[in-house]
Design a binder for these strands. Structure first.
Length: 869
RNA sequence: GCCGGAGUGGCGGAAUGGCAGACGCGAAGGAUUCAAAAUCCUUUCCGGUUCACCCCGGGUGUGGGUUCGACUCCCACCUCCGGCACCA
């Protein structure tokens, strides 16, 4: 202790060592409940494995070379507070951590420096583990996982094979084993090759020649989600479109399940909304338009079948398969040119500012099925080949994009929906304005006069009866591009035989280890680095067949899709996890992490989980019951932290200067967990002063013993009241994730008690238990100095007595006509008539009343009295 | 453009429809000290009046509304942050 500061360095080191050496937070798996068996009550006296479970999960960190930034401890501290709190409440708490260690940054770094990514990765893990341990989080370190460890990725590959060996049954809406796929007779008659192709076409992991986002600088393809505004999310390199053979996962088949599953989850509505929008369900109809003079029909998807009568032209995506067939000779050249142009355009050109519509007439016409009119067929890149049917009917009067296109190319506009607003209706009818809302049908033959809603139903039924169309549902969600042309990822357990067959590696031969390579640089041609591993790549099967290994690797998402399951049983060599452990621990009760994973990671994980659920490996349909997103921490200048701005706060430095407890406490005191908030070093000093003051409240800085004021006494009424109010507030605030206000209340407690010449020891002990969830090192130390010998981690959480927490006297605001005139003190349990009497006798009230009776008296218990005169 | 979230002192923030500004930071003054650090005490929303105490008025992005009473609920608008972005 110097300058009134406690020796946080020594104390924090001491307790971190203690926790590690004693494996204080080692968590046993309990036995799963049998159906009908009552849930055990939280009880700190029960054996750990007999207690009810609570699974608190932090989002999987990537062990980057930069190490921890101040955003990490924010979520980790919040989850650690809950973990420690629940443990003291008598739960068996699973609180693990691990490393999402495959991925681009380590590999990019390796390519630049020549150090193997395996080496850098282990170094980074070491460093981050040191940093995380220096913050005193109560992780069970024996459950640590590392996605780059073959003992881990063995099971990532195993799950991949589950995808490969499954199909999606649209009737049951679930994944099933590929052996159970019914083969239709017409396929069966086509022979083994046809059957094999049929099976391959139904696998949930499949190969496809697909237009991909190729990033030449990174030497890999990227998922749509990894491309932001035409450049790579990591590094900001340009991305172009290219056709390549790729592995895909059929997430689209799970769209409906992924949507429905959100309903029961305790996530914020805004995160659910993000996922819903990403999945992008829309209900409408598919309608066939005959091409004039051809046998072919063009199928379109529309959410507005009620506007069919207003379809004045059609547009196909440039990549649409019918384009060549229907284009007339006269337009062949122009169409070819347009297609080339569209192909050359990057996503950036296609979507960004250049909103001006382009297109080309094919020379062909289609017949509008509802009224037989001949309408021209165009192609344009505003129609996407990857959504719906890649073709649309254009209703310029009632769709903004079609309206713009029609204006550009002078195509006819026919209004078929009349808005309620007269002025607007006139404009729409004249074709000078586009109306996309609901209204009344017009120019629609026998359907005239129907409301939009009714019309939609009637016309869909009508189309179906005539065999011209049917109800249809579309999703924005695309299948997941699952392969990368990089070295540092899980190899696919897949073989390609010389005769072009694809085979899965046998489960018993997993893990398929990543070969050690000296040259792991990506190539600009798109040939993956693994193709250079000559020894590894060539395989001779038992029957003598020669085969080559798949040389793509899995994306970084793969390992993080199921890590929360491996924690349950991280050292299991026989299985990914023991079913009993899964049934005991799942689902995750609380998942804390950044909102940047709102769609991707959380959607992918849920998708994997649903496959495992369908196949019977996990018992819950959803993995993460409650989700909380911590907000970003900005620099002291209120800007995003970045090296170039020079406003990055280094957690190591903060810990060195103020200690881990101050760091933890400050991050929680800054404001609400979910809020975006700026860092303040002076704020850190503030909470640090609070911890010093707490220390001095109990420990005498002169001799290191207890303060003389600390005595075995019951304590006065005020002290007891504040103690019980504090227990109440802190407990409730932890449950509500309002950590900032919990800390305020602890400050109020310390401010009060520090002034007391006599400080009851029992109150201090209870307070230390509360504090220990937030600041565990000083908590343990004070607990010990107060005469305890064991760690406080499993001490029962203090309870409060509502009687003792209650104020005896309360101050009421005295309002006359809603304006505060004075304050009066009454006893907390004063009756309304007592209060009324006291109020009426008040001089200011008498003056205001001027002898008359008040119109109305409103009394709000313990709050105020409002007199209406 | 569309969809979310948020606007409260000098700053971070607090307030089941009921005393706006808890708690912390900063600032000012004082105590302690040879001096400083640390600590402790007092003041600190704005304006007016008088600062001796008080007293009066205004105030939660802007403008309306509901209510005895609105930071809180409703309508319109402005600003900032985040997400999506031709998904028919």
């Amino acid at each position: 202790m110097d300058n009134g500061r406690y020796d946080f360095n020594a104390i924090e080191k001491k307790w971190q060592d203690y926790w590690l050496q004693n494996k204080t937070f080692k968590t046993p798996n309990g036995a799963p409940l049998r159906p009908g068996q009552p849930k055990p009550k939280p009880n700190p006296a029960a054996r750990l494995e007999n207690r009810p479970k609570y699974y608190v999960l932090d989002m999987f960190p990537y062990p980057s070379g930069q190490g921890l930034h101040v955003g990490h401890p924010e979520g980790y501290t919040a989850s650690d507070i809950v973990a420690r709190y629940k443990r003291m409440k008598g739960y068996n708490v699973l609180h693990p951590i691990g490393w999402d260690a495959f991925g681009l940054p380590a590999e990019q770094y390796a390519v630049q420096t020549g150090t193997h990514p395996a080496v850098t990765t282990q170094k980074n893990i070491e460093n981050m583990r040191r940093q995380i341990q220096a913050l005193g989080f109560s992780y069970d370190w024996d459950r640590q996982v590392d996605t780059t460890d073959p003992a881990y990725y063995k099971w990532t590959q195993w799950i991949f094979l589950k995808f490969y060996n499954s199909w999606f049954d649209p009737v049951l809406q679930k994944a099933r084993r590929i052996e159970e796929l019914p083969i239709p007779e017409n396929i069966r008659s086509g022979g083994p090759k046809a059957i094999q192709k049929y099976i391959n076409d139904h696998r949930l992991a499949y190969e496809a020649e697909a237009p991909v986002n190729w990033c030449p600088a990174l030497g890999t393809v990227l998922a749509n989600e990894e491309v932001v505004g035409g450049v790579s999310e990591r590094g900001g390199h340009p991305v172009i479109r290219k056709m390549m053979r790729q592995w895909m996962l059929r997430i689209t088949h799970f769209a409906e399940r992924l949507l429905e599953g959100l309903e029961g989850l305790d996530w914020t509505e805004s995160i659910k909304k993000l996922q819903q929008d990403w999945i992008g369900k829309s209900v409408g109809a598919e309608v066939d338009f005959q091409v004039d003079g051809h046998k072919a029909a063009i199928r379109v998807f529309t959410t507005r079948p009620d506007t069919l009568f207003g379809a004045t032209y059609m547009v196909l995506a440039p990549e649409h398969p019918l384009v060549n067939q229907i284009t007339t000779d006269e337009y062949k050249k122009s169409i070819e040119n347009y297609k080339l142009e569209a192909l050359r355009k990057s996503d950036l050109d296609r979507t960004d500012l250049a909103k001006e519509k382009t297109g080309q007439f094919t020379g062909a016409y289609a017949i509008n099925p509802v009224n037989g009119s001949k309408i021209p067929i165009w192609i344009s890149d505003y129609v996407l080949i990857s959504y719906g049917t890649g073709a649309i009917m254009s209703v310029p009067a009632h769709d903004e994009r079609d309206f713009e296109f029609a204006k550009t190319f002078h195509l006819p506009i026919i209004a078929v929906v009349r808005p309620a607003d007269e002025a607007l209706a006139n404009q729409v009818e004249k074709g000078t304005c586009c109306f996309v809302g609901d209204g009344t049908a017009m120019n629609s033959g026998s359907f005239n006069g129907l409301s939009t809603l009714e019309f939609k139903e009637k016309i869909t039924a009508w189309l179906e009866k005539k065999g011209l169309g049917k109800k249809a549902i579309n999703y924005k969600l695309r299948d997941w591009l699952f392969s990368r042309q990089r070295y540092w990822g899980e190899p696919f357990p897949i073989l390609h035989t010389e005769d072009g067959q694809t085979l899965a590696v046998d489960e018993k031969d997993l893990p398929l280890e990543l070969p050690k390579m000296e040259d792991y640089k990506p190539s600009e041609s798109g040939e993956p680095p693994l193709s250079k591993a000559a020894d590894w790549i060539h395989v001779t099967l038992a029957d003598g067949t020669k085969a080559k290994r798949e040389t793509n690797t899995m994306p970084q998402w793969a390992g993080s899709c199921w890590y929360y399951l491996r924690y349950l049983d991280s050292t299991n060599k026989q299985a990914a996890f023991d079913p009993a452990a899964e049934q005991y621990w799942m689902p995750v009760d609380l998942y804390i992490g950044g909102a940047e994973h709102a769609v991707l990671h959380l959607l992918y994980s849920r998708f994997w989980h649903k496959l495992l659920y369908d196949l019977g490996y996990v018992s819950t349909p959803e993995p993460f019951q409650k989700l909380v997103n911590q907000g970003m921490i900005l620099g002291e200048d209120n800007q995003k932290m970045s090296k170039s701005r020079g406003n990055v706060i280094n957690p190591d430095k903060v810990i060195a200067d103020y200690g881990a407890d101050s760091m933890r406490l400050y991050e929680m005191f800054m404001g609400p967990l979910e809020a975006v908030k700026p860092w303040s070093m002076q704020g850190v000093e503030g909470v640090h002063r609070f911890l010093n003051k707490t220390w001095r409240m109990i420990v005498d800085p002169e001799n290191g013993g207890l303060q003389a004021a600390v005595q075995e006494v019951e304590g006065d009424e005020d002290t007891l009241r504040i103690l019980h109010q504090t227990i109440k507030k802190v407990t409730g605030d932890i449950e509500a994730f309002a950590f900032n206000t919990a800390i305020s209340q602890m400050m109020i407690f310390v401010n009060h008690l520090s002034k007391q010449p006599v400080r009851p020891k029992h109150a201090l002990k209870k307070f230390v238990l509360l504090l220990s969830a937030f600041a565990p090192h000083i908590g343990e130390e004070l607990w010990q100095r107060l005469g305890q010998t064991k760690t406080l981690a499993y001490e029962p959480w203090p309870t409060f007595d509502p009687q003792l927490a209650r104020e005896k006297e309360v101050e009421l605001a005295l309002q006359i006509n809603g304006k505060i005139k004075d304050r009066i003190c009454v006893s907390a349990d004063a009756s309304e008539s007592e209060i009324e009497q006291k109020v009426l006798a008040h001089p200011k009230v008498q003056a205001a009343l001027n002898g008359q009776k008040p119109k109305k008296i409103i009394i709000v218990k313990s709050r105020l009295v409002n007199l209406i005169v």
